[in-house]
Write a protein that binds this DNA or RNA. Structure first.
Length: 679
DNA sequence: TTCTGGACGCCA
DNA sequence: GGCGTCCAGAAG
C-alpha cells in the first residue's frame, strides 16, 4: 500500500540494476517537454518497466508520468527523488509509439504528453486486472492462398504480393466505383496476418468501423480483430485497446485515435478516405491521420495504403514524389463499374411534370430518378448539410443577405412551411433580430432567395414530386448505415449516405453550388470527394446506374466526376497549389490570438530565412448570440516556408511556445501546423 | 506546491 | 562582511 511506502520513505534503497528511470511528466508546459530522471527503489524494480505509468513528485506536486527508459547513470547534478509510485506494470507506452509520439510532437510543434493523451486511453484498473488475453491464432495458409479482388487494379496483384512477402509497399489506392472496399482492405489485412504481422486501419466514422470489422472478422475470426471507436465506454475502450497492446489480435480497425493503436509486428497501415475532415484531430497538437501514418510507416518500416474513391492533393504529392505507388482501376474495370454521370448548370430545363417543377428539379434529374424508381431501385439524393434554408441571398444579385445590426447571415427560422407566401420574416442567425424590410446594400433589390436548400425541405418537395414513393432521410443525428434495394428516395447529407443493397439506381447530387461557392482552399477537392463517395454507391452504367450532378459540366470537379478521374483532378489541384504557394506544396503554420500578444509572438519568433509572414488579419469566428459579450477580437497570421524548411519552422514555433510558456505568458497564441484550411 | 538562490536590508 | 528575509523562478 502507498501508506507503507510513505512511512518507510527514508529507508528506500535503489534498485539493484538500472536504478535510474527517465520520465515524461504530465504537465502541459511546453518548456518542460523532455524527460526527467528519478530513482527507482528496490521495491519498484520489477514493476518499473519501460512504458509503464508512474506517479512522481514534481516541484512538490504529485503528477502522472510515463517511464520511457531505465538507465545506469544520470546527467542531473542535483539529488534525485524516488518514483513516488509505479501505477501499474502494464507497459502502455510501447517503444514504437513512444518514438512515433515524439516525432508527431516535433512535427506539429506540440508536446509529447499532448500526443500521449491522444494515443493512450485512460487506465481502468479493473479491466487491466482481467486475465491476459490469448495470443493471436496462427493464421493458416501461405500468403498466396488468400484469394482477393484486387485484380481490377493496376499493380493490385503486386501490392498484395508485397504485403504477403513482407516487402515494404506504399500505395495510394483509388477504389473503383461500387467497390466493396471493406472486403478489399480485409483481404489485405488477411494477407499480412498470414505472414505473421498485424494491420492498423483508420476510417472516418463508426459506420465504417462496423463494416470493416465485419469484413475482417469474417476472414480472420472475431478474436483476431479489435474495433476501436470513440463511442465505447472507458472500460470497453481500454479493454479492447489492451487486447491490441498485448498482441492478442492481428487487426485493429478504428476511428482517428486508432492511428496510434499499438500493434506488435506491425506490417500494414491503412487510412480510408483521407480527405474526410474527421481525420483531422481537433485537439492539440492537431495531427492528421494520413500524416501520422506516413510518419509511422516511415519509422516502423510498415507498409502504407492511403485509400479512397477520390484523391487528395496530399496523396497526389506522395505519388509525385515517388514515395508511394498509385494503385488505380484499369480501364476495363472502370468502364464496367462506373455509373453514367450527367451535369446540369444553373440554366437547366425544368421538368415538365408539375410536381417536379415545384421541387425545382431539372428534367434530367427528374427523368433519372423516375427511371430508377420504375426499376424498383432506390434513388440517393445528396443535399447540403444542416437545416431548412441555411441562408438567404439577394434575389437579384445574389449578394449574401446580412443583418443590418451585426452583419450576421440572415435565414428563415426553421419549422416553417417554405412554400407558404405568408412565411415569417427572416432573422439574423447571430443576434436573432428579425429583418422585415430587407434591401440589398449592393443593388437595392428587396427580393430574397434561398441560397441553399436544406435536407428537410428537399425531402418534402421531392416527396411531392414522386407521390407514393417512400422517402427516407439520413443525416445529422439520425444516420442510416444501409437501406434495402427497393424503390425509395433516400435524402442524405454528405458523409451520411447509406449503402444500398445492390446499389442505387440513381443519385442526384444537389449540393454543388453550396460547396463550390465556398472561399476555401479545398472547395474543389472536397466537392469532388463528396460527389464520388455518393456516386460510388450507384450501380454501374451497364446496369442502368445514373448520376446527375448539380453543377455545370464544364467545371473542373464536374469534369473529373463525369470522366471518373480523381487522379487527374488531384494533379491539377496540386499543380495549382504549387503555383499559388499553398499546402501541400509548401508548409504552413497559423498563429491565432489577440492582436497584441500575436504581434509580440511574431516579433519574438526566430523563423527560418525562407519564411514568409502573411497577415495578421482579423479572423472570422463563428459567433454565438449568447456569447457575443465574451467574444474577443482575434487575428491570425500565416507562416509559409518551402517544404524542406518544414522541420525548421516547427522547431522555431516549438521554441517560441517554450519561451512564452516559461515566462508564463498569460495571453494565449494558438499555434497550428498544417492547418486544414489556411484560407 | 515546494525548494532554491539571488537581491536586498539590517546589524556588527 | 555576515546573516536573515523575501520573492521569483524552476521544477529530477
Amino acid at each position: 500500500m502507498a501508506r507503507a511506502a510513505t512511512a518507510r520513505k527514508g529507508e528506500r534503497r535503489p534498485a539493484p540494476s538500472l536504478p535510474i528511470a527517465r520520465i515524461y511528466v504530465d504537465v502541459g508546459l511546453p518548456h518542460l517537454d523532455r524527460t526527467f530522471d528519478y530513482r527507482v527503489a528496490d521495491t519498484q524494480h520489477d514493476d518499473a518497466v519501460v512504458g509503464c505509468r508512474v506517479r512522481v513528485r514534481f516541484a512538490g506536486q504529485l503528477v502522472d508520468g510515463y517511464l520511457v527508459e531505465r538507465a545506469d547513470t544520470t546527467d542531473h547534478t542535483g539529488r534525485l527523488a524516488y518514483l513516488e509510485r509505479v501505477v501499474s506494470p502494464e507497459p502502455v507506452l510501447t517503444p514504437e509509439i513512444a518514438t512515433l509520439a515524439r516525432a508527431v510532437a516535433d512535427k506539429y510543434a506540440g508536446t509529447m504528453v499532448d500526443v500521449l493523451r491522444l494515443a493512450i486511453p485512460p487506465r481502468h484498473a479493473k479491466v487491466e486486472a482481467e486475465a491476459v488475453s490469448d495470443a493471436p491464432d496462427v493464421v493458416s495458409g501461405t500468403p498466396d492462398t488468400v484469394s482477393h479482388g484486387w485484380g481490377g487494379y493496376q499493380h493490385g496483384d503486386a501490392l498484395l504480393t508485397a504485403l504477403g512477402k513482407g516487402t515494404r509497399a506504399r500505395a495510394v489506392w483509388q477504389a473503383l466505383p461500387g467497390e466493396d472496399w471493406p472486403a478489399r482492405l480485409a483481404e489485405a489485412a488477411t494477407t499480412v496476418a498470414a505472414s505473421g504481422r498485424g494491420t492498423v486501419i483508420v476510417v472516418p466514422d463508426y459506420r465504417d468501423v462496423a463494416r470493416l470489422h465485419h469484413a475482417c472478422a469474417e476472414r480472420l475470426g472475431e478474436r483476431q480483430v479489435v474495433a476501436l471507436s470513440a463511442d465505447l465506454g472507458p472500460a470497453e475502450r481500454y479493454r479492447r485497446w489492451l487486447r491490441a497492446r498485448r498482441g492478442a489480435a492481428r487487426v485493429v480497425v478504428g476511428t482517428r485515435a486508432a492511428m496510434f493503436a499499438p500493434m506488435t509486428d506491425l506490417g500494414l497501415l491503412v487510412v480510408w478516405d483521407d480527405g474526410d475532415d474527421l481525420h483531422a484531430e481537433p485537439r492539440a497538437p492537431y495531427p492528421h491521420v494520413r500524416d501520422v501514418l506516413v510518419q509511422r510507416a516511415h519509422l516502423s518500416g510498415a507498409s502504407l495504403v492511403v485509400a479512397g474513391f477520390a484523391r487528395t492533393a496530399e496523396a497526389q504529392l506522395l505519388v509525385e514524389s515517388r514515395w508511394a505507388h498509385p494503385v488505380v482501376p484499369d480501364r476495363t474495370s472502370l468502364r464496367s463499374n462506373a455509373p453514367r454521370v450527367t451535369g446540369f448548370g444553373e440554366d437547366f430545363d425544368l421538368a415538365r411534370d408539375e410536381a417536379a417543377r415545384a421541387a425545382r428539379l431539372p428534367a434530367v434529374a427528374f427523368e433519372a430518378a423516375r427511371a430508377a424508381l420504375k426499376a424498383d431501385a432506390p434513388v440517393l439524393v445528396q443535399v447540403p448539410r444542416r437545416g431548412y434554408v441555411p441562408s438567404l441571398a439577394c434575389g437579384s444579385c445574389r449578394t449574401p443577405a446580412r443583418c443590418r445590426r451585426c452583419a450576421g447571415p440572415l435565414a428563415v427560422p426553421a419549422g416553417q412551411q417554405a412554400h407558404e407566401e405568408t412565411a415569417r420574416a427572416p432573422a439574423c442567425r447571430w443576434c436573432g433580430v428579425p429583418e422585415s424590410r430587407f434591401r440589398c446594400p449592393a443593388c437595392g433589390s428587396a427580393q430574397l432567395r434561398a441560397q441553399v436548400i436544406g435536407a428537410r425541405r428537399t425531402a418534402e418537395e421531392l416527396g411531392r414530386a414522386f407521390p407514393g414513393v417512400a422517402v427516407r432521410t439520413s443525416g445529422g443525428k439520425e444516420v442510416l448505415a444501409h437501406v434495402d434495394g427497393s424503390a425509395a428516395l433516400v435524402i442524405a447529407t454528405p458523409g451520411a449516405e447509406p449503402v444500398a443493397a445492390g446499389g442505387y439506381g440513381a443519385a442526384l447530387l444537389l449540393d454543388g453550388w453550396a460547396l463550390l461557392g465556398r472561399q476555401d482552399l479545398r472547395a474543389g477537392e472536397e466537392t469532388l470527394r463528396r460527389w464520388m463517395t455518393a456516386a460510388a454507391l450507384v450501380r454501374p452504367a451497364e446496369r442502368g446506374g445514373r448520376v446527375v450532378v448539380g453543377a455545370d459540366a464544364g467545371l473542373v470537379p464536374a469534369q473529373a466526376l463525369i470522366r471518373w478521374d480523381p487522379a487527374w483532378h488531384a494533379e491539377r489541384e496540386l499543380a495549382e497549389r504549387r503555383e499559388l504557394g499553398f499546402p501541400p506544396a509548401v508548409r504552413m503554420a497559423s498563429l491565432e490570438g489577440e492582436p497584441e500578444p500575436l504581434a509580440a509572438a511574431l516579433d519574438e519568433v526566430v523563423l527560418p530565412e525562407s519564411a514568409e509572414v502573411l497577415g495578421p488579419v482579423p479572423v472570422m469566428t463563428p459567433q454565438r448570440p449568447d456569447r457575443q459579450s465574451e467574444q474577443r477580437e482575434l487575428e491570425r497570421a500565416l507562416l509559409r516556408v518551402p517544404n524542406v524548411d518544414g522541420k525548421a519552422l516547427a522547431a522555431a514555433l516549438a521554441a517560441l511556445q517554450a519561451s512564452r510558456g516559461a515566462r508564463k505568458e498569460p495571453d494565449t497564441v494558438r499555434v497550428r501546423l498544417d492547418p486544414l484550411s489556411p484560407i
